[in-house]
Design a binder for these strands. Structure first.
Length: 354
DNA sequence: TGTCCACGTCT
DNA sequence: AAGACGTGGAC
């Protein structure tokens, strides 16, 4: 007969011996500073602890209280955020401080009120309530997701399984101990995720949960959580024609007002399709009759697809058919006066060098 | 040296 | 409601 020690007990026992010392963290037995918690949690969004530490210290030196932050200029706040990335966090943080200062001056103790503040979403609201106010919320971030997926050996892929993982994570603090030590419990989960249950090479041998962790027992911890391989972006193919006259002007035309690179200038080009078409067909499509020589291939990555374009250069006289009526001749130096995509600049620069 | 990617919030 | 945000770390 075996009795199962609750997860929360194992986690808290470990935390009492192995917790990290962090500048925003309250010393054991002391009341946390909710402003420190809020500031650190905003900084920790998408950013690692080691990166955040010097920024947090600098902010606390300059803005010891939330009121100081609210009264500071946005410029100063932005300047101090420099290098930390995701700058909308800094703008939102500043607005958040101002809203709190304007209201009660106290950071809300209520989930909905917190979420209504700029820059605070599900995760951060739960983190502030648990760590800052010792309320039994489970803040589910990527670390907690990973710990949960391993603890229960969840093999379905993210992001599909995200809601299930969040629901499971929220069962971890059941029991009197974790309810009473909500802040410690939340931070304990983060510490385990960061120092033991790492994304790669998890240290199951020294993990307080190893004997109850399904993934560890099945020796599959290192492959969890499984992520959906994001759909490969399709590749499209096109042919573009580089045509220069004796005044060093380049033949360009305007793309349609809708769709990719709407309304920008382009080299006369075939439609981008699933595979390369022949140069003869591209000539017919564009209406730019003549002899061409292939000069290279340009690769360009859009959000939704990768584009490969074969570049051809005109090596004979040009004869335009009616299809080509809208074409215009532009000198490459004048190009800046027209809307022209990076892709086209790339292609023109390449062609000009040849 | 570049390329890929993290996974919280906002729009 | 998919995509943008921006840095640093992994390969």
């Amino acid at each position: 007969m075996s009795t199962q020690i609750p997860y929360a007990t194992l986690i808290l026992r470990w935390y009492d011996r192995h917790q990290r010392i962090l500048p925003w963290r309250a010393k054991t037995g002391t009341i946390p500073n909710p402003y420190y918690v809020l500031l650190s949690e905003i900084m920790l969004q998408q950013t690692q602890v080691a990166t955040v530490i010097p920024y947090f210290n600098k902010f606390i030196e300059n803005f010891p209280t939330l009121n100081d932050l609210a009264e500071a200029s946005l410029e100063k706040v932005m300047a101090m955020w420099t290098g930390l990335g995701y700058y909308s966090r800094a703008r939102n943080l500043h607005r958040c401080a101002q809203e709190v200062a304007k209201q009660s001056g106290e950071i809300p103790k209520d989930y909905q009120a917190l979420k209504a503040l700029p820059g605070i979403g599900d995760y951060t609201a739960a983190a502030i309530l648990s760590i800052g106010y010792n309320q039994p919320y489970v803040a589910v971030d990527g670390n907690v997701e990973r710990v949960t997926a391993r603890l229960f050996a969840i093999q379905e892929p993210l992001p599909m399984i995200k809601p299930t993982l969040a629901a499971l994570a929220k069962t971890l603090n059941e029991g009197r101990e974790a309810q009473e030590r909500a802040g410690d419990f939340a931070q304990a989960l983060f510490d385990i995720g960061a120092t033991i249950c790492k994304p790669k090479n998890p240290s199951c041998l020294i993990c307080p949960l190893s004997e109850v962790c399904k993934a560890s027992l099945e020796k599959i911890a290192d492959i969890l959580p499984i992520r959906q391989r994001k759909a490969e972006k399709p590749t499209k193919y096109g042919i573009s024609l580089f045509i220069e006259n004796d005044k060093n002007q380049i033949l360009l035309r305007k793309r349609p007002e809708k769709g990719v690179l709407a309304g920008t200038l382009e080299l006369p080009s075939s439609i981008w399709s699933e595979q390369y078409i022949s140069i003869e067909q591209a000539i017919k499509e564009t209406g730019c009759l003549g002899q061409y020589q292939e000069i290279g291939e340009i690769k360009h990555v859009f959000t939704h697809f990768t584009l490969k374009v074969k570049l051809f250069k005109l090596v004979s006289d040009l004869k335009l058919t009616q299809v080509a009526q809208d074409n215009m001749w532009i000198h490459s130096d004048e190009l800046n006066h027209y809307p022209c995509s990076t892709l086209m600049k790339k292609m023109i620069a390449y062609s000009t060098k040849i």
